[in-house]
Amino acid sequence: MSREPDITALPEPAEPRAENAPVPIWIFTVSFVALFWAMLYFDQRGAWFNPQVYAPYKSLSHLQSFQPPTGGPNLERGRSVYENVCALCHNTDGAGKPNQAPTFIGSEWVLGNPARLIRIPIHGLTGPITVKGESWNLNMAAMGAALSDEDLAAVLTYMRQSWGNKASPITEEQVKAVRAETGNRSQPWTADELKPFE
């Protein structure tokens, strides 16, 4: 290493300097074309700074056109809630399980008065009960107590309109009304207590 030539003794090249060649015109052409393309690109995909529009939607109206159709009961929602909350005991096809839970298919409790039906999941049901001529005497927990009003409405609607059942949908307002009326209650219902609501 000590035998390498001492660079500091060698003359150093001069500092660089720049000449003044003009910028070729085609660079400007390319730039303008590129700028134009960039503006088109943003116009197509940028949704003009709208905070609600995410790719792949191209604009607010494009996004709006993909909103799921509402109007009418949300059976899909009801079905999903049903399969998570009720199906364990009442079975996915609503037929119930022997010694576990009664059927919903053609059940007068499901197809009857909404006020009576809504109360059952909110507080639970206990004691003897007759469903489609069969007697049951079990305990149902308040499986719907934790559900929101719209989820409960959706699942009850689903039960009333599936598997051959044909009854009117249950609305969120009906559920709200029942909750308001029975707010203080903590005990499960018995069949007798539900008689007034037939």
């Binding site: 529009v53 996004l63 909103q67 899909e76 929602r77 999903s80 399969e83 998570n84 559900l147």
Partner: peptide, 28 residues
């Protein structure tokens, strides 16, 4: 901003990290 219908879909495809035999329940 991210519209979709909730469906109770089938089990996730095999190439995810889902453990074998996982039951597919769509949560609420």
């Amino acid at each position: 901003s991210a519209p979709m219908t909730i469906t109770s879909t089938a089990a996730p495809t095999a190439d995810t990290n889902a453990p074998a035999g996982a039951t597919a329940t769509t949560p609420a």
